[in-house]
Design a binder for these strands. Structure first.
Lengths: 236, 236
DNA sequence: TGCGGCCTCGCTATTTTTGGGGAGTAAAAA
DNA sequence: TTTTTACTCCCCAAAAATAGCGAGGCCGCA
């Protein structure tokens, strides 16, 4: 088992294109003997991508009906951290039941496991595998392979972040005072309060904020704070 | 190796209190033969916690000097996804060099590896281990144990989320319009621009922003944007 | 020694945001 | 069905932020 996992991780490590990720899902499906294997993610600017073994019929149907907005797997995993057995999701609504029936008709397994992964700039990804089998068999599969799947999800996401161009953009360097000023404003201080906190005049503080704004390419203070936060320059 | 890892993960699985997490760091330090092992996290309402093997002297010193705001490990890992060797962080600033010198004086290893983990509502955690050794030895350690450490980080974070009591309740849910409004302001739009973008009156937009402010417990718009960002409600 | 970046302070004026009110409709949940 | 929630619009006065102008001292680097 271990050597097989190493091989799969190594293949992923070598991936340089989206097609490679696509091929990796095929290899992984076969490696684990599953019905389907899917990696789906949202990058830092909200664009969605997918790599997986679903039939194009099902993918088209899914997109056409905008199932993205009601899929219990997605809605459930957005609020979770841990790998989630589809059994533990909320399938109570009528729409969810119909969705599942239709999915199974298209070859999706009745059992599934989905692992959420989150990146540093709001990137959100789901690694899903599914199978047609009974509950005990599926729980047995999860017990045996969950850890491997976590590592695979991690590796997939690492690649997805590499492909997320625009994420690498260099953060401008702010002076210590500029950082302090922006950090205080991010905590909700008014300029006057922040100035008092730093024991300087409000005018001086304003100079720092303006400086930070220009360096960050921000058009107002709120924008500057948002950029400083997403660039990891400050911590709230 | 595998059985040792399983045992450590099992111990973590059994943890029901913060003290258990604290003890787990001791076990893990010994298990891996490290100088220190630390898990540090920020929950969904911005409270910070730590469990680790650092001396209380160093922890006190760290807090007293507010190193949280300049620690290159924290600032660096906020923008990363992958486990990060301390060697790859930015230690160029004078303050960072002094910080590292002081840390080593307090018994922190000169080599370190830190794994960032992110939860569904802006929870952010760092699993750190460090050691005193030369570069090749440390790279060898990383190559051998990085995967185990990823799984351990995952398990730690699972526990931290269990302890995050306010996670369900405090996770402020903004309405779609409120989210849009805050997201536009985070992009630097003025109220008037944001209102135009959403095709509503500026007055209406203000209602959303105020609503979001109150839900987020923020004292002004900038604060609200900062909170929405760090809670992962919006992305810039 | 000069140049640039950083830190500090001041003024005036305009634009924007904020904090209170109140009020109606439509859709969704209880 | 009732109630709640979300969405939409409006007024007013005070507070805050923005934009432009100016000044001087300190430090490091070339």
């Amino acid at each position: 088992m271990a050597s097989g996992l190493e091989k799969q991780l190594h293949l992923l490590e070598q991936a340089t294109t989206l097609e490679h990720l696509q091929q990796a899902t095929l290899h992984l499906r076969d490696h684990f003997g599953l019905a389907h294997f899917i990696y789906h993610w949202v990058n830092s600017v909200g664009e969605r991508f997918g790599a997986g073994t679903y039939s194009s019929d099902w993918v088209d149907r899914y997109l056409e009906k905008d199932y993205l907005r009601m899929d219990p797997v997605i809605l459930g995993c957005i609020t979770r951290f841990h790998p989630t057995n589809w059994k533990d999701l909320d399938w109570s609504s009528k729409a969810a039941k119909a969705f599942l029936r239709e999915a199974i008709d298209y070859g999706v397994g009745n059992q599934g496991l989905t692992i959420p992964v989150r990146g540093p700039s709001g990137q959100f990804a789901l690694l899903t595998c599914n199978q047609t089998c009974d509950d005990p068999a599926w729980e047995h599969f999860i017990a045996n392979h969950q850890q491997d799947l976590i590592l695979i999800a991690h590796q997939f996401n690492r690649k997805a972040l590499e492909f997320d161009t625009g994420f690498e953009a260099q953060a401008p360097s702010l002076s210590p005072r500029e950082l302090s000023a922006i950090a205080l404003l991010a905590k909700g201080f008014s300029r006057a309060q922040a100035a008092q906190d730093l024991s300087i005049s409000e005018h001086t503080l304003r100079v720092y904020v303006e400086g930070a704004r220009h360096k960050l390419g921000a058009i107002n203070t709120t924008h500057a704070v948002a950029r400083a936060l997403s660039n990891g320059l400050i911590v709230v």
